[in-house]
Design a protein around this nucleic acid. Structure first.
Lengths: 190, 190
DNA sequence: CGCGACGTTGATTTGCCTCAACGATTGTGG
DNA sequence: CCACAATCGTTGAGGCAAATCAACGTCGCG
């Protein structure tokens, strides 16, 4: 469903019909079943993936085997280990599907060419990264300034629908707390 | 010293001599003395500021009056409350100079025009935001995954020179811990 | 039915904070 | 040039937020 990608691009930049065709020709559609991986730590991230349908988690594993959620992504977001994608270094992230998922992928070489050939794509990604940076900065400030309960409240406000879509222990991991402690926070609210 | 800005832009994108002149004509130089403010919470952030010389801290204040460092910025970085700059909403950040500082400022209207007139600037800022996002994501992961001591070690590795330039309590605040606790961490290392 | 995934709860421990006091250094005005 | 204040780092005692360990209940699903 590449219309969704075009629609998303159009929300941020102007694209001619010709450019739109060129853009789409550089993406390919991939399906990932629930519990399957888009990438594992140690691999090099070769693609940025635009989510057409579904939901994924990106996370690291520490020495004790605990998951730490880097981000949760749904329709209209890109997923990938951006650092690995840009530098060619091994990924630190695992990314796996929480639902059956469809993504549109582009590799680095194609993206580099596209950014030069289609200036609107520079604009599009500039705006995406700009917004992503603002959001990430907010998360940093929440992490270092607020209590777990405050972070949970903010999470619910910001992603009201996500709560029904993913298990609670993933929210805990996203917030940087244990599932047990999130359970206690929730109890205090009743 | 606008050569520094041009040099920085050239590291990421190609700019003709004409474009370089156009770019510079949209920036103005501002001096901020140590302890003075670039912006205070509640104000609208009208400018993005490229640091030519000096060092600033961006922080929030909580109800108890504690500082929480959003970021520390030195030469070749931009400072500003990006969210406020983009949306026109009041800033949540205070930004003040830790040393006598010189910045080159551009306002939103001028930047919007410049991004359209000079495609290389779209590319430049796309790359800057991309890198800033990667760095911010790393900080999120560190905040939710690592102990205070691990975060301190990473900070020293990543910003080895900053340590001699700023007081210790700012590092503590950047890491999301108290100065007292950072002092105890340091003692354990000797 | 039985198993695995998920959420909850209690008891205990620990990482980090708070409050308070005290040196060391720096800067500043008399 | 010295006295004094302000700033910064350190240390100790006590407290709290959140982790850990362990057990148990529930539900969906093969």
């Amino acid at each position: 469903m590449s219309e969704l990608l075009l629609k998303h691009i159009h929300q941020h930049a102007d694209l001619s019909a010709d450019d739109a065709r060129l853009v789409l020709s550089n993406f390919r559609s991939i399906h990932i079943k629930k519990h399957e991986y888009l990438i594992r730590a140690g691999e090099i991230c070769r693609y940025e993936s635009f989510i057409v349908k579904g939901c994924l988690k990106a996370y690291t594993l520490d020495e004790q085997g605990n998951e730490h959620i880097a981000f949760l992504a749904v329709e209209n977001w890109y997923v990938g280990d951006l650092y690995s994608f840009l530098t060619g270094q091994p990924s630190t992230l695992y990314i796996s599907a929480l639902e059956d998922t469809e993504v549109l992928q582009i590799d680095k070489h194609a993206l580099d060419k596209l950014l030069i050939a289609v200036p609107a794509m520079e604009r599009y990604f500039r705006i995406l990264f700009q917004n992503a940076f603002v959001a990430s900065q907010s998360r940093v400030m929440e992490a270092i300034s607020y209590t777990a309960e405050q972070r949970y409240d903010i999470f619910l406000q910001r992603y009201p629908t996500l709560q029904q879509r993913i298990p609670q222990y993933l929210i805990a991991s996203y917030l940087g707390i244990t599932p047990q402690f999130l359970s206690r926070i929730r109890r205090n609210k009743l």
